[in-house]
Simulated scan of single mutants.
Amino acid sequence: MKIFSILFVCHGNICRSPTAEGVMRARLAQAGLLSRVVVDSAGTHGYHVGEAPDARSVKAAASRGYDLASQRARQVADEDFAAFDLILAADSRNLADLRRRCPAHLQDRLHLMLEPLGEGREVPDPYYGGCRGFEEVLDLLEAACEGWLEQLRSRHDWMAS
């Protein structure tokens, strides 16, 4: 069975990317695809390696039924560029960091998380704001994950069955 892999990336891997991982994991489970798609998250920087997601992310996600509790922050590794079929950055700054590190022949795997919602759209960083920012991030990521899932189904026959 073909396994597809997705890596969500933000700056520190404690807000946006773990939330995206949790949302996509839930969407894949609902679609019966969790055994066919591997989902992970990482940060372009290692400030929070080993830490749990931000408590505000965990709380906001839990209020919508997403469980982030077992996740731990990690930094993007060079091996990730070959290991993941799709690498989704939260914003253009993180995408630029990834592009600098990614081998030329794997650059087509790099995209913005919100690409299904429109070219150039970015997930705002809620870290320094209030709780409403974490809800906004969830709104955006729920819509984007649905968009990515539809794109993947249309491109990969084995996901549609």
Rank of each mutant, 00 (worst) to 15 (best):
N13G: 04
D85W: 03
R74H: 12
R56M: 03
S57H: 08
G129E: 04
R27E: 15
L141W: 00
V58K: 09
G130N: 05
L149V: 11
N94F: 00
A77G: 06
F134K: 12
L68K: 03
Q71N: 13
M113L: 15
L138S: 12
E142T: 03
A29M: 14
R27F: 11
G129L: 02
A26I: 04
F8W: 10
Y47F: 05
H156N: 13
E115Q: 10
A82W: 08
A143W: 03
I3Q: 15
L88P: 06
R72G: 06
Q75Y: 01
L88M: 11
G46S: 14
F81S: 13
R64A: 02
A82C: 07
R27L: 11
L149P: 09
A29V: 14
A61W: 02
S161H: 10
R74E: 13
V76W: 05
Y66F: 15
L98N: 09
L68T: 04
R16M: 12
L33W: 01
K2S: 15
P18S: 09
V39W: 00
R99P: 00
M24S: 01
A160H: 09
G22F: 09
S35C: 08
F4R: 05
S57G: 09
L141R: 00
E119A: 15
G50C: 05
S154D: 14
G50T: 04
L88C: 13
R56V: 03
F84E: 00
S92G: 08
A52M: 10
G133S: 13
L106H: 14
S70M: 02
C15Q: 14
H111L: 11
E51P: 09
Q30Y: 02
R93T: 14
F81V: 14
K2Y: 13
A104Y: 04
L86N: 00
F81K: 12
S63A: 15
A29G: 10
D40W: 01
M159G: 03
G118S: 08
S41L: 07
N13D: 07
S5M: 06
L95F: 01
C102N: 12
C145W: 08
M113E: 11
A31N: 07
E146Q: 09
A20C: 06
V137W: 05
A69P: 04
G22N: 09
E135Y: 06
I87G: 12
A77R: 15
Q75H: 02
L140H: 11
D108P: 07
S57V: 09
